[in-house]
């Protein structure tokens, strides 16, 4: 009994903080989404008007579809780009120091300011940007590619670079943990490289893929800065909708967008956790 009291005493600051500043705001968001919105104010009279408006408006529903499309594209590309890198780091580099050094190299950009990372793409992608200049110098293209900046493509490129780290890290960790003798013995038994990949490496790396996918999903769905900075405010995600609605004091609308975002996110995370039980992997 005595030790139980001590435990809750130790927990009390953290729990209090979480209840007041994490749980309460989220509940408030759900609650407010059912409030009555007038032009300049909001009244705590419950209604589903904001919800109906959200789904019947092309702007908002379109933003939802765009958000989902960009999220899935970024998710797919980070996996496509990140997996081979993680495979290389985890399986082909045998030297532990080199392995750690490479992983650290991949993680370091995460350490720098998020906005600076977004900003750094501007001189890369423009019509006179570094990519166009390099491609023209090598002679791959004659005229500069114009769709690089201020399009959906630039948003996707930026997001992939910013978030791919969260895919590489967990996958490389899981692949690095695979017992080398397992692969050796499979090879001795005559398994081809493809079979080894399909039967051993791929299944064992799945928890890493799931964790990476959850990270990327959660971050991309909450995004708005990359979209507005790299698309010239042309590409509006749900996050951007929330910003503008809050700016114009349309609280109920912002709350609806927030709840929709939460539902998409929670559904995906729940499905992912169904596939792999993470608690067994830790």
């Amino acid at each position: 009994m005595k030790s139980n009291k001590r435990t809750w005493l130790l927990l009390s600051p953290g729990i209090t903080w979480i209840l007041f500043f994490l749980v309460a705001p989220l509940i408030m968001m759900i609650y407010v989404s059912f409030w009555t919105q007038t032009t300049f104010s909001i009244k705590p009279e419950l209604t589903v008007t904001s919800w109906v408006n959200f789904f019947s408006s092309d702007t908002y529903f379109g933003a939802l579809l765009r958000t989902i499309r960009i999220w899935l594209t970024v998710l797919f590309v980070t996996l496509l780009v990140g997996y081979p890198v993680a495979l290389y780091i985890g399986q082909f580099i045998k030297n532990k120091t080199l392995q750690t050094a490479l992983l650290v190299t991949c993680v370091i950009p995460f350490w720098t300011s998020f906005l600076i990372r977004v900003l750094a793409w501007r001189p890369m992608l423009g019509k006179e940007g570094a990519i166009n200049i390099v491609l023209q110098k090598i002679g791959i293209i004659d005229a500069p590619i114009e769709v690089l900046l201020f399009t959906e493509l630039s948003v996707i490129i930026g997001m992939v670079q910013i978030y791919v780290v969260f895919m590489v890290g967990p996958i490389a960790f899981m692949i690095g943990r695979i017992d080398g003798s397992l692969i050796e013995s499979a090879r001795d038994l005559g398994a081809s490289s493809w079979t080894i990949f399909r039967r051993i490496i791929l299944p064992l790396s799945m928890p890493g893929v799931i964790v990476g996918a959850i990270f990327v999903t959660v971050m991309v769905l909450g995004e708005f800065a990359t979209a507005s900075a790299l698309s010239g405010r042309k590409v509006n995600l749900l996050g951007n909708i929330i910003i503008t609605q809050v700016g114009s004091l349309k609280w109920a609308f912002a709350a609806v967008a927030g709840v929709v975002l939460t539902i998409v996110m929670a559904t995906f995370v729940a499905v992912m956790l169904r596939i792999v039980n993470l608690r067994n992997q830790l």
Partner: peptide
């Protein structure tokens, strides 16, 4: 996501 928490 920060947006949601900030909003709440």
């Amino acid at each position: 996501p920060g947006v949601l928490l900030g909003l709440g």
